[in-house]
């Protein structure tokens, strides 16, 4: 195989798409952590839950695609909220218990689908538009372009939401100084419920636009969680800017290794990126969690 300019362009185009997919996979996880300090390890499971729910509503109930998608996003958000109200609230503040509880819920959801026999290539969601385009000499299908466009819209909407709505501003307040936020009449449990719920909804939205590229499988739930963790650790937990930069770093590194070194090195590159970041700046590129300790 010879290096050609076309190959370079192709790699760049697919690296951008890969990065955008990583952003979508991790932004909800990171948002929940940024607002309420909860690491939602059921994140990957919620992603798969949304995909299977859409699939069932579409194939078994026979609802139109947009309706099925909408219902599954709402249901996933509701599960996030219930998870906080009935389980996380009781162990709030004990980080280890929060992680174990959410990871346990995630395992239960994922393995329940496996138990029900949701395994196989027939479990897939249709693409939105079955078409493809050429960017230069690179062949890109419509779904990947939709992912990029939808992600830009979603990140933009999120930005508007947290800067201009009352609930969004409350998120920003609670994230910065919870006790002060309480003096303005915010209810920390309500805001935390909303943050977990919004994170879950973002997982569902990510699943809706990304899953049509392939099939739905239980093991993907774990992959999504690992990707979300990796990107969040590299970018700095709780920082949306960090998620975007880290996704670009990891996304490009993965695609370029894939093309120029070999696909079996892809995973090693992302893990190496985590290790390097943890050695040089443990709180991540834009992280603030441990800034003080680092300075000392």
């Amino acid at each position: 195989m010879e290096d050609t300019p076309e190959m370079l362009l192709g790699t760049i185009v697919y690296a951008v798409i890969n990065s955008v997919i990583l952003i979508m996979m991790s932004i909800g996880f990171n948002l929940t952590f940024g607002i309420s300090g909860i690491s939602n390890f059921a994140y990957g499971a919620l992603y798969i839950f949304a995909a299977f729910t859409t699939y069932m509503l579409l194939q078994m109930v026979g609802l139109p695609y947009p309706v099925a998608v909408l219902i599954s996003i709402v249901l996933t958000a509701a599960i996030g909220a219930l998870m906080y109200r009935f389980i996380l609230m009781r162990v709030r503040g004990q980080v280890l218990s929060e992680v174990i509880a959410t990871f346990g819920i995630g395992l239960a959801i994922l393995e329940f689908f496996r138990y029900l026999g949701f395994v196989g290539v027939e479990y897939a969601l249709p693409v939105f538009i079955d078409d493809s385009f050429m960017i230069g000499d690179v062949f890109v299908d419509a779904q990947r372009l939709i992912i990029v466009a939808a992600s830009i819209v979603i990140v933009g909407l999120l930005w508007l939401f947290v800067h201009f709505t009352s609930l969004g501003l409350a998120f920003r307040g609670i994230a910065q100084d919870e006790r002060t936020a309480l003096t303005f009449g915010m209810d920390s449990d309500w805001i935390a419920t909303m943050s977990v719920s919004l994170g879950a909804a973002l997982a569902a939205i990510a699943a809706t636009i990304i899953i049509p590229l392939g099939t739905i499988s239980v093991s993907q739930g774990y992959d999504v969680l690992i990707n979300a963790l990796a990107v969040s650790i590299i970018g700095g937990l709780g920082s949306t800017g960090g998620v975007i930069v880290a996704s670009l770093v990891v996304g490009f590194a993965q695609r370029f290794t894939d093309t120029y070194i070999g696909s079996h090195w892809t995973m090693i590159v992302s893990l190496a990126a985590i290790l390097i970041v943890l050695v040089i700046k443990p709180s991540g590129i834009y992280g603030k969690q441990k800034e003080l300790e680092e300075r000392i």
């Binding site: 800067h163 910065q176 002060t180």
Partner: peptide, 14 residues
């Protein structure tokens, strides 16, 4: 007690 990352106007809005 103010929210350090936010602008003065945003603090008042929060």
């Amino acid at each position: 007690p103010v929210f350090h990352e936010s602008s003065v106007l945003e603090n008042l809005k929060i």
